[in-house]
């Protein structure tokens, strides 16, 4: 399968501290890959280097087979940054924020009827259709995260890159986010997620890449639950696990 993201021998530093020490990461079309690791393991830096936000000191990045430096088809990528708590200084509605995500397709800033329909669809996908005219500042943390995901989906991307999409998100929103992501994957989207723990997204994930101190320590099926999560009495129920066969990228 064609690699959508290809990171080879990537090294990066923040100041004088090496954060990535030569990592390889390949995401193929249609795959859902989770990037796991403790705080400071370099997972956020790895993702941000993929989209060119952190310059690499060595190695290479390719997106859709094109070297990052020459890559221009940004509309193919939907990016969900790690949620920032600070709202901006001026109120903005859900629709206004989501529409910003469509600019990668509407270069000149003029939204055609099709563009507007795509924005509406993205808002519906995350279940905020009744909040389009509300100020984002009035939303809960989970709803705010759904707005950021709708913004990424507005461009109808082929590749979704999400940095900790479940951090600080309430259970109801987690369920909606998992549903949204499942629909995207079913429609053929490729996904790279930074996660702190597998959580409710576990059944969707084909492959997990675990980082420790800027190096890849595991690249394969999602690691099995350990510790308390693996105890026999621990009822590991996911509401949607039944209708979604577990896919392991290595075996299919």
């Amino acid at each position: 399968m064609e690699p959508v993201i290809s990171l080879r021998g990537a090294t990066a530093a923040l100041g004088s501290r090496p954060v990535l020490r030569g990592i390889d990461l390949t995401v193929r079309r249609g795959e859902v890959v989770a990037l796991l690791g403790a705080n400071g393991s370099g997972k956020s830096t790895a993702v941000r280097s993929v989209i060119g936000r952190v310059p690499l000191t060595g190695g290479s990045v390719e997106l859709f087979g094109t070297e990052l430096k020459r890559f221009r088809s940004w509309a193919r990528i939907g990016y969900v940054p790690q949620r920032t708590t600070a709202a901006s200084g001026v109120p903005a509605t859900v629709r206004e924020v989501v529409a910003a995500g469509r600019l990668s397709r509407a270069r000149l800033g003029r939204l055609s009827r099709a563009d507007k329909a795509a924005v509406t669809r993205a808002i519906e996908l995350v279940g905020l259709a009744d909040r389009t005219g509300d100020a984002v500042g009035a939303l809960s943390g989970g709803q705010h995260q759904r707005v950021l995901i709708a913004r990424a989906l507005a461009a109808e991307p082929e590749l979704l890159i999400m940095d900790e999409p479940m951090a600080g998100v309430d259970l109801a929103s987690q369920g909606i986010l998992a549903d949204t992501l499942r629909a995207q994957v079913a429609a053929g989207a490729t996904v790279l997620l930074v996660l702190h723990e597998l959580g409710p997204l576990e059944p969707l994930i084909d492959r997990a890449v675990v980082l420790r101190d800027g190096c890849v320590t595991h690249d394969g099926p999602p690691p099995k639950a350990v510790g308390q999560h693996a105890l026999p009495g621990h009822d590991h129920v996911h509401p949607h696990a039944a209708d979604e066969p577990l896919r392991t990228g290595l075996l299919t």
Binding site: A75, A100, G109
Partner: peptide, 22 residues
Amino acid sequence: VGLRRQLFAISQDEEFARVTGL
């Protein structure tokens, strides 16, 4: 006025705006 959508995007979330290719 002419560039309000672009200027809104970069002022709202600069990092995201970069990834949309603005």
